[in-house]
Design a protein around this nucleic acid. Structure first.
Lengths: 199, 199
DNA sequence: CCTTTTCTAGAATAATTTTCTAGAACTTAC
DNA sequence: GTAAGTTCTAGAAAATTATTCTAGAAAAGG
């Protein structure tokens, strides 16, 4: 998959990379068709050939990066022994990703993501469905062992990720949070909320 | 402030109401200048006279409703005795608002809100700064009394609202959550995470 | 090679937002 | 009550942005 990539794949990548670059520099508003073609050197026709629309391009970008994020989260819980260290690993992996890829995270969290996800989102949902199972089964396993409280999945997910997402959004927009401190403090706090009662 | 409103105020309201109606029916994509002028019967020139841009209009709409939401949250905690019941009241007020105004909530939570908030957001931030203090001071008060753990404000806010926002977004988009159950279960869970240790 | 398919290119078109000019409706001061 | 100034309404024109379309180059498969 390296020396003789089909040229289409190459231009797709050129476009995806350029789109992220443009978004990082010019933000939501600046992410236009012409900005991307200019930044990538790829023609308008190619963009539409590969992605069908500007939202299609954004969607592909989101899909790519959401996959990576979820993959990292799955790895994090996969390598942890008990539920408690799993929570810590998960929170730190998430915050680490945000810190390492702030532009991507901004795109993933805010704005265009929801809309594109809603309207275009076949692929996006596929990625979620492909990458979530490790996380879900991790949770189920520990609920069964009596380590995590038996809550409805949606509530469990919100308790687990809600605060982390909240802190991330805040760091990405306002900036008045210390992510390292959050990584230190949040896990134990979150653990209290979802840990089984007999702790 | 009722019988002789200045006509400008009337058209502003016409536009704001129409914008929400259009958003509810046609979604993100459908919320265009022409759709709003059509739905409101107001001319293009008036729209631009009052709001400067389509984002300006959306921003005003967000400002109006964010103010109401924050007001209801402040009322909720204001009427509660101890910190624990305050948390319960807060969570229920939030979820109640979402259930009562799903379209508004969709707009507030997702998509356009962040972008408009980022770029246009002077007013929006003003509303936040005007309406948050009751909530902040409520938190501070109970931290001082030793009921709530002494966490940095941003972390406290994320632990408190993160899960609630997460559940709301999910209910608004996917729909696979039971909001009444969430209102029953979340408060005690959240309380565990932020309550002072000596409970 | 010849055929078919995939891909590139950019001009033409369409959709949408924003600007601009003109005048109507209201307000204020005298 | 009316002249001068301001706010507001109106919609045509301009600008910006997204999408479609047609033509042909490059690659793949026989």
């Amino acid at each position: 998959m390296s020396p003789k990539q089909h040229r289409g794949e190459v231009t797709s990548d050129l476009l995806l990379d350029a789109a992220l670059r443009v978004y990082a520099e010019a933000g939501e508003q600046g992410l236009t068709v012409s900005a991307v073609t200019r930044a990538s050197g790829v023609s308008l026709g190619s963009l539409y050939h590969h992605f069908g629309s500007i939202d299609g391009l954004v969607n592909a970008l989101l899909t790519r990066w959401l996959g990576r994020l979820l993959g990292e989260l799955a790895d994090a819980v996969g390598q942890s022994r008990d539920a408690r260290t799993g929570v810590r690993a998960l929170v730190r992996a998430y915050l680490g990703f945000v810190q390492e890829h702030p532009d991507v995270s901004r795109l993933l969290h805010s704005s265009r993501a929801d809309r594109v996800g809603m309207e275009q989102g076949r692929e996006l949902r596929d990625v979620q469905e492909a990458r979530m199972p490790p996380l879900t089964s991790w949770a189920v396993r520990h609920v069964e062992r009596g380590e995590i409280a038996p809550l409805p999945p949606a509530l469990l997910e919100s308790l687990l990720l809600g605060p982390v997402v909240g802190v991330s959004r805040r760091w990405l927009t306002v900036g008045d949070v210390d992510l390292d401190e959050a990584a230190r403090v949040l896990p134990e706090r979150i653990w209290r909320s979802i840990g089984a009662d007999g702790a």
